[in-house]
Design a protein around this nucleic acid. Sequence first.
DNA 1: AGCGTGCTTTACCTTAACGTAAATGTAACG
DNA 2: CGTTACATTTACGTTAAGGTAAAGCACGCT
Lengths: 142, 142
Amino acid sequence: MWGRQPVQDECVMTTETMTIRQMCDAFGVTARTLRFYEAKELLFPQRHGTRRLFTRQDRARLTLVLRGKRFGFSLEDIRQLLDMYDRDGSNAAQLTRTFQLAEARLHQMEAQRTELDVAIAELKSEMDKTATLLAGFRRAAE
Amino acid sequence: MWGRQPVQDECVMTTETMTIRQMCDAFGVTARTLRFYEAKELLFPQRHGTRRLFTRQDRARLTLVLRGKRFGFSLEDIRQLLDMYDRDGSNAAQLTRTFQLAEARLHQMEAQRTELDVAIAELKSEMDKTATLLAGFRRAAE
DNA sequence: AGCGTGCTTTACCTTAACGTAAATGTAACG
DNA sequence: CGTTACATTTACGTTAAGGTAAAGCACGCT
């Protein structure tokens, strides 16, 4: 009735590779997002003809990308962090550079945490004032 | 509405009004920012000829704007809060609304901090791995 | 052969909070 | 009067993370 999904006889769900739509469904992102991430060198899907085939590695990377995004990091930050997870450039110089990148990121994150703590404390203080005012109003209303 | 200021023909340096540059120095913002905030109806400086003169109210409002920004509110959110306050800041219903907005924002910020803590822990863990690898390389290099 | 559907690329659109540049104005100093 | 030092308006530029539209392949089915 509706167009049935073309059943791939040979490439049966080995979970080896996934089409773009399978990725969208699996991760809850749009196709545009996956293509965008490829353009930004966050993912490196293979091609079968013109079609993208996302590998196990792409899925692992995408998981990390989405986690990083939840933490509020930019895609560029994430790309650099992914290079750290990919310690395939296993020479000491590369690892050292990677480590330094991570260290810088860590400092940024800790600074961000400190700022967030300050902001939270300030906001709480402001809310206390407002709450006090409100309490006064409610007493006056009786 | 809140108090009119004395007409000043001579440019006496009262603390009543400030030029744009005095404002920049006092608040650590650029002139572009002040003009932008005026365009966005966050500030309402008077004019002396073509020049802006920022009043005590403007300074109070700018203080609130900058505080709101530290809390992560958008300028549009801030404008609405300021407008509410202007219309009838001493209205219990509006104070309640303000409080609720602040509460929601506080929850967001606390959630953000929790996630940030997780991310920091994970990153530290990855850095440990990298450091261990590096130590191995350095031993091998001797 | 035709149809429907999915995938592809190319390319312009969006939002926030300003930055930056150009052209012009004006006020004070010397 | 000229120069200097700000001030003003207008208007286009920037960045991030995609959205959206257009138009063309590439199939599998009938």
